[in-house]
Write a protein that binds this DNA or RNA. Sequence first.
DNA 1: GTGTCGAATGTTAGTGACTAACATTCAAGT
DNA 2: ACTTGAATGTTAGTCACTAACATTCGACAC
Lengths: 179, 179
Amino acid sequence: MMHALDLFERRGYEQTSVADIAAAAGVTEMTFFRHFPTKDRVLLDDPYDAALVEAVASRPQAEQPLFRTVNGLREALSAIPEPGIALVRRRTRVVAATPSLRSAAWRNNQRTEDAVSEQLIADGGDPLEARAAVAAVLAALTTALLWWAGEEDIDLSAALNRALSVFDREPDREQSHAG
Amino acid sequence: MMHALDLFERRGYEQTSVADIAAAAGVTEMTFFRHFPTKDRVLLDDPYDAALVEAVASRPQAEQPLFRTVNGLREALSAIPEPGIALVRRRTRVVAATPSLRSAAWRNNQRTEDAVSEQLIADGGDPLEARAAVAAVLAALTTALLWWAGEEDIDLSAALNRALSVFDREPDREQSHAG
DNA sequence: GTGTCGAATGTTAGTGACTAACATTCAAGT
DNA sequence: ACTTGAATGTTAGTCACTAACATTCGACAC
C-alpha cells in the first residue's frame, strides 16, 4: 500500500499505527489485517524474492552453491525496472531507519533462503553448505541494499558488486586457530 | 533465566506468556521487564557475542575482513566451556522451532555485526566490504548453529567448518550475468 | 533502636499489534 | 426478487510492553 509507505516516510514506522494506515486508505483496522498478516508485510511484500528463487533455479546445476546464488541474484536484479528500483530504495530507507523492521526484513530473507536452498539441495547440493552459501549471499545483499539506500550517487548493482567481492578474496593462508 | 528456558522447552515460546515466566520465577510481570527489555532477550542474551567481538579485534589487522572474522569466530568458539555449549544447544533448539525468535536472533546478530565491522573499519577496512564480510560469516554461523542443534551426533565446530567451507571454494569462472 | 535513603519490587492503567466470532453490505448469477 | 459469497465492519479480547506512582526492605548514619 502506497498510503503506508507515505506515512512511514513522514512520521516513521513506529509512530504510524495500523489504525492510521487503515484510515488513510479509507478502511477499518480489521480490513488491513485481512490484506496483510502483519504490519511489516505491508512494506516488505514484493515480487522480487520469488524472481530471485526462479533465477537461481534456472542457473546451471554445475555451479557451486555460492556462485550459483550470486549469479542468479545478479540476473534477478538486472530484471527489475527503474520504477521498481526507486520504490525499493524508498522502502529500504524506512527499513534502515527502523531497527524492528530490520529483523522483519530478515524474516523475509529466511523465506527466500529456504526456497533457494531447497532448490540447491534438490539438485544434489549438500544441505548445510547450500544453506550457508545462500544465507551468506543474502546477508551480503542486505548489507549492499542498506548501504545503497543511504548513499546518494551509487547504483544498486555497483553496491552489490562491492559487497559480493569479499567472496572472491583469497584467504591469507596461515595456521590460525585453536579449534 | 532458567525458568524461561524450561517453560519454552515444555510449552513452546509463543505459548509461554511473560506472566507465566514471571510467575515461575516468583515475581511480577513488571519485574521481568525491568530485567529484560523484551521477552526474547531472556533467551538470547549471553556473553558470547562480546567475546566474538574481542576475538576478532585481537586478530592481526593484515588479514582480509572475511578471514579475520572467520578466524576470530573459531577462536571465540573454542573458548566456550562444555556446559555453555550445552545451554546454547537447548536455546538454539527453541529458536529453531520458533519463527519469530529466528528474526529476534538476527537482531542480536546485527548488534554483533555492528561491533565487529566497526572494528574492521577502524583498522582501515572498506566499510561496505567489512560489513558484508561480517554479515556473511555471521549468517553462516547461524546456519551452522541451527543445523547443529537439529542433529544429534555432530559437534559445533564440525558444523561450523562445513558451513564456512563455502567461502573457500573457487568460483567456476565463466562469463555469466547480464548486470 | 530510630531515621533515612536508595534500590528492587509491586499496582494500576494504558497503548498498540493482532485474533476470533459474529453481523452487515453488496454485486453477480439465477 | 432470491440467493449466495466475498469483502467489509463491530465488538471484545489477548499479549507484549510502557508510564506514573506506591511500597517494601536492607544498609548505614546517628
